[in-house]
C-alpha cells in the first residue's frame, strides 16, 4: 500500500539537515505522561495483592505476606483449574481458526462483486454486529436459540428436524460461541483486506486474463498473494490473544450446565475475585495470565518485524 493521497501528488524528499529539539512537542506529551503515571503505572503496585494474605479491611498496605502460596495453591490444589486453562486455549484457537479465515473468504468474494451498490449494501450490513454489545447480543441469541419458540429451532422443525438445545449442551455450546463470535466479527475483519485489495495493480489482472486465466485462477494467483502479507501480519498479531477467549461473550451466554466446556480464565477470575471475594487468588491468576500474554505479545511482534517487516511501535 502507498501512503495517503497527498503523498502521491508531491515528491517525497527526506531532508538530512539536523533537527532542533522542539519544546512544544515535548510539552504536548505531558498530559500523556500524567495519564500513564496515574492510570497505567500507579495501579501496578496492586499486583502485590497476589503475594499477600489480602483482606479488604487491612488493604494493600497492611495485609500479611504469603509469598508464592497463592500461586502454589492455584496450580496444585485448585480443583478444575487446568480444565479452565484447557477450555481457554481451545476456545481461543477455535475462534482464531474460523474467525480468521472467514473475513478473508468474504473479502475475496466481495472483491469479485462488480455492482458497487450491492457491494456497499453488503458491506454496511456485515459491519453491524460489530457495534452491538454482548449484553444485547446475548439477549438476542437466547431468544433466537430457545429450543421451544426460538427462530432457529422453528426453522429446524420446519425441515422436520428435532429442536436443538444450543446453549445448554456441552456438545453445542462451543459451536454457538464460535459461530456467534465469527458472525459478530467477520464483517469488520474484511475492512483491512478490502483496503489491501484496492492496492493490487489492475494491470496484473489484465495480464492474467490475456494469459487465459479464469476467475478462480486469478483469485488464487493474484488476489490472494496480493493480500498475503496482511494475512500473515494479522495471524501473527492475533497470537497474544490466545488466552483471551472473550469474557463479555461467554459471561453473558454461559450457564452452569456448560461450565465444563465454557468456563475460561477471565470468567473464572471474575467469579473468584468479585463474587467470592478471593482477591489475592484472582490477582495471582490474572498476573500469570498477563505474564504469558506479554511473552506472546513480544514474541509475535518480533516475528511480525522479522517475517513481514512490520513494526508496530
Amino acid at each position: 500500500m502507498t501512503s495517503a493521497g497527498a503523498g502521491t501528488l508531491l515528491p517525497v524528499k527526506r531532508h538530512k539537515k539536523s533537527v532542533r529539539t522542539d519544546y512544544m512537542l515535548c510539552a504536548m506529551l505531558i498530559p500523556g505522561f500524567i495519564y500513564l503515571g496515574i492510570f497505567e503505572f500507579a495501579p501496578l503496585f496492586g499486583l502485590v495483592i497476589g503475594f499477600q494474605d489480602f483482606k479488604l479491611s487491612t488493604g494493600v498496605f497492611n495485609s500479611g505476606w504469603k509469598g508464592l502460596d497463592n500461586f502454589r495453591y492455584i496450580f496444585t490444589m485448585y480443583p478444575g483449574f487446568w480444565n479452565i486453562v484447557k477450555n481457554t486455549v481451545e476456545i481461543a484457537l477455535l475462534k482464531l481458526c474460523f474467525g480468521f479465515t472467514a473475513p478473508i473468504l468474504v473479502s475475496l468474494m466481495l472483491h469479485e462483486v462488480t455492482n458497487s451498490t450491492y457491494k456497499r449494501t453488503i458491506q454496511t450490513l456485515v459491519y453491524i454486529p460489530h457495534f452491538v454489545s454482548w449484553v444485547i447480543l446475548a439477549g438476542i441469541l437466547r431468544s433466537m436459540l430457545d429450543p421451544d419458540n426460538g427462530l432457529i429451532n422453528h426453522i429446524i422443525k420446519l425441515f422436520g428436524g428435532a429442536p436443538v438445545y444450543f446453549l445448554g449442551s456441552n456438545s453445542t455450546f462451543r459451536g454457538v460461541l464460535v459461530v456467534s463470535d465469527v458472525w459478530k466479527g467477520f464483517g469488520w475483519g474484511t475492512i483491512i483486506y478490502m483496503a489491501a485489495l484496492t492496492g493490487i495493480d489492475p494491470a496484473l489482472y489484465e495480464a492474467a486474463t490475456i494469459d487465459g486465466a479464469n476467475r478462480l485462477q486469478r483469485a488464487v494467483h493474484i488476489t490472494l498473494p496480493g493480500i498475503l502479507p496482511i494475512i500473515m501480519l494479522n495471524l501473527i498479531l492475533s497470537i497474544p490473544g490466545i488466552l483471551n477467549a472473550g469474557f463479555d461473550q461467554i459471561f453473558n451466554l454461559y450457564n452452569e450446565r456448560v461450565y465444563k466446556t465454557a468456563d475460561v480464565l477471565d470468567t473464572f477470575i471474575y467469579r473468584l475475585g468479585i463474587l467470592d471475594s478471593q482477591y489475592a487468588l484472582s490477582t495471582a491468576i490474572g498476573m500469570v495470565k498477563s505474564v504469558i500474554g506479554s511473552v506472546l505479545l513480544v514474541c509475535s511482534y518480533k516475528i511480525a518485524e522479522k517475517a513481514v517487516g512490520y513494526k508496530v511501535f
Binding site: L29, L47, V60, S290, S294
Partner: peptide, 27 residues
Amino acid sequence: KEACPLNPLFKVLMIIAMLTGGGLIPM
C-alpha cells in the same frame, strides 16, 4: 527523536503499560 527527545521514553512506557495491568482493586 531529535525533534522530541521524550519520544523513546514515552514509547517504552507505553509498551510496558500495554503489557501489564493492576486489575480492578488497585484501579
